[in-house]
Nucleic acid binder design. Structure first.
Lengths: 201, 201
DNA sequence: ACCTGAACACCGTTCAAGT
DNA sequence: ACCTGAACACCGTTCAAGT
């Protein structure tokens, strides 16, 4: 992502992304207007067009920045969980939900607006999934996870934490009073151990 | 007395919901305009205000209709799966993802736009979750599912299928060429059996 | 009651022009 | 090069009026 120094401001491009983020956090993507972003950084409502072809491009830039932050959050959560592979996977799951909780504006742009047809996933987005799939494969090679299609297992793990994040289950009565971290940990443990009484086939 | 075809005595409300749905399916909620809905049913752009206080209320009506259809789809999927409790739960999961796939417009309105603060979940929405939680409790009482917090287990199951639906994983290369039903079934089996090699604790 | 056109305060975006 | 105001074609919504 190129840094674009503007004439009158230190870095208008970055300022626009930041302002967009703040406005989304306040009122949602739906209420985001280019005019308001401009006013927020003290610039004409047309200044944004110097750096972004249109509103969609600005959103795409926010989206990309979000996925980069997201991928780092996943790696941090994984590494903070120690060396045990199951703990590392669970650490990523917790980091996923906490990221959504703490960065609702980013999460909304990253996953909220359906990908316009033809828009390919950005690099950081693909990297985020790779991180998870690698952790699964590592767990398998260590013998901590059952054998099988690692990608499928990654899909299941990803879907679980994404569902919790998207439904904000950790922020509803469904969480049954559990703290977010404990709720996600409990759900993750269910996936790891299985729901069935004869879980180990 | 001649029938004035431009009048929609009584059925305009339903026609507006239906038209809204079709337009959302074509271009997404974001591009939905009251004016276009009106034109679509051959009515002035203000006619909608006879039946809905504003655009948000129309969307809420679509949302509610969606959840009603959704709850029925879950029950149908459950009952079609037979009497075995694990098969019934899996049947609901498959129905969940298939509903999202076959009714993207409904799904987008139901879950896409974040609940405006203060908007309580509609009856059908709560019923849908109740159906799932009951199926879990039934599986426990039959001894097919492990004991434990049924609500938490329902959250995990719900999140898994919601994540698949929201990320449209069954419609991406992540599905690894599996048919949607097979992909969801495989993911559901992973949750039921567990990812860990020592799944049965 | 049910529907309508005109009008208002917003949008995103284009354009020609200012510095 | 970078930024601006005026202008255009849209929105949702209000209002007074038509049938």
């Amino acid at each position: 992502m190129p840094v674009n120094k503007s004439y009158h401001h230190g870095n208008l491009r970055t300022a626009l992304i930041q302002a967009g983020l703040e406005l989304i956090a306040q009122k949602g993507v739906r209420a985001l207007t280019l005019r308001e972003i401009g006013a927020h950084v003290g610039v004409s409502r047309m200044a944004a067009y110097r750096h972004f072809a249109d509103k969609a491009k600005l959103l795409a830039a926010i989206r990309e920045a979000g996925f980069e932050k997201f991928a780092i959050a996943l790696e941090t959560g994984r590494d903070a969980a120690g060396a045990e592979s199951i703990a590392r996977i669970r650490g990523m799951g917790v980091a996923y939900v906490l990221f959504a909780r703490e960065n609702p504006a980013y999460f909304e742009v990253m996953f909220g607006s359906p990908q316009e047809s033809g828009a390919p996933p950005c690099e950081a987005e693909k990297r985020a999934f790779q991180i998870l799939e690698s952790a699964i494969a590592e767990g398998q090679s260590k013998g901590d996870l059952r054998q099988g299609n690692a990608r499928l297992m990654a899909c299941a793990a990803w879907s679980l934490v994404h569902g919790i994040s998207a439904l904000k289950l950790d922020q509803t009565p469904f969480a049954d009073g559990l703290a977010p971290v404990d709720f996600v940990t409990a759900c993750s443990n269910l996936l790891l151990s299985g729901l069935a009484s004869n879980a180990k086939k």
